[in-house]
Design a protein around this nucleic acid. Structure first.
Length: 206
DNA sequence: ATACAGATCGGT
DNA sequence: CCGATCTGTATA
C-alpha cells in the first residue's frame, strides 16, 4: 500500500472527502500500530461555508493549521471533552479541511478497546466493536489522536494515510452534514459521504 | 474581563 | 432529551 504524498491533498476538500473513503488512517503509537479504514467524511469548504471554522476567513490560533499547506492534521477540542480530526486540503491560504467521522478498525483493535473502554476486546459484542470508532470523537479516542497531534504533517510523521481500494460508486451515499444547525444555507449542502455497506457509519440517512 | 455556544457522546 | 465540561471566539 502506498503512502499518500503532498500532491494528493492538493485539491478541494469536497474532492478530498470523496477520495478518502476506503483509505487507511495509520497512527504509530506507544500502544502499537493503529489502523482504521475511513468510512465516513465531511468536507468543510472554507471562507464561504458557514459551517466551517474558517468561515469568513477566521484566522486564529485554532484555525491556523488550515491556512497552511495541505496534508496536515487539524485536531480540535469539541464540547470541552472530545477531539475531532480533520485533514487539511487545498492550497496554502485556502483554509479547507475534511473531517474524519468514522473508521472501521483494521489493526490494533485490542489497543483501541483499551483506549476507549479500558477493557479487553475478547469480551466485546459486535455492537461494542462498532462503537469503538463510529463517530468523530470516538475514533480519535480509539486511534489515540488528541490535540497533541494537531499540526502534524501526514506526509512526514507517525500519523499518515495509505492508499487502498476505493468503494464502488454505487456504495457511496452523499448527504448533508451532521450537527451544523447554526450554518443557515450551508445546512443543506451535500458535503457528507459514507460507505453504505459499512456497519461503522455514525448516522444514516432516513 | 466576561459571556456564550459548540463539526459529541453516553445515559435516561 | 439532557447534561458534562472547557476552550475558542467575539465583544467591550
Amino acid at each position: 500500500m502506498i503512502k499518500l504524498n503532498r500532491d494528493f491533498y492538493r485539491k478541494s476538500s469536497l474532492e478530498l472527502a470523496k477520495n478518502l473513503l476506503g483509505y487507511h488512517l495509520v497512527h504509530i503509537t506507544e500502544h502499537g500500530r493503529l489502523i482504521g479504514k475511513i468510512v465516513e467524511t465531511e468536507a468543510y469548504m472554507g471562507i464561504h461555508d458557514k459551517a466551517a471554522h474558517s468561515y469568513n476567513n477566521t484566522r486564529t490560533k485554532r484555525t491556523e493549521v488550515m491556512f497552511g499547506s495541505p496534508g496536515h492534521a487539524y485536531v480540535y477540542l469539541i464540547y470541552g471533552m472530545y477531539n475531532c480530526m480533520n485533514i487539511v486540503a487545498a492550497e496554502t491560504d485556502i483554509p479547507q479541511a475534511v473531517l474524519i467521522r468514522a473508521i472501521e478498525p483494521v489493526e490494533g483493535m485490542k489497543s483501541m478497546a483499551q483506549l476507549r473502554y479500558k477493557k479487553n476486546l475478547y469480551e466485546f459484542s459486535k455492537k461494542e466493536i462498532v462503537g469503538l470508532s463510529n463517530g468523530p470523537g470516538k475514533l480519535c479516542q480509539a486511534m489515540d489522536i488528541s490535540r497533541n497531534e494537531n499540526g502534524l504533517d501526514l506526509v512526514n510523521s507517525k500519523l499518515f494515510l495509505l492508499e487502498n481500494d476505493p468503494p464502488a460508486k454505487s456504495d457511496i451515499v452523499t448527504t448533508t452534514r451532521i450537527n451544523i444547525g447554526y450554518a443557515e444555507e450551508a445546512i443543506d449542502f451535500p458535503y457528507r459521504f459514507y460507505i453504505n455497506s459499512s456497519p461503522h457509519v455514525s448516522v444514516r440517512v432516513k
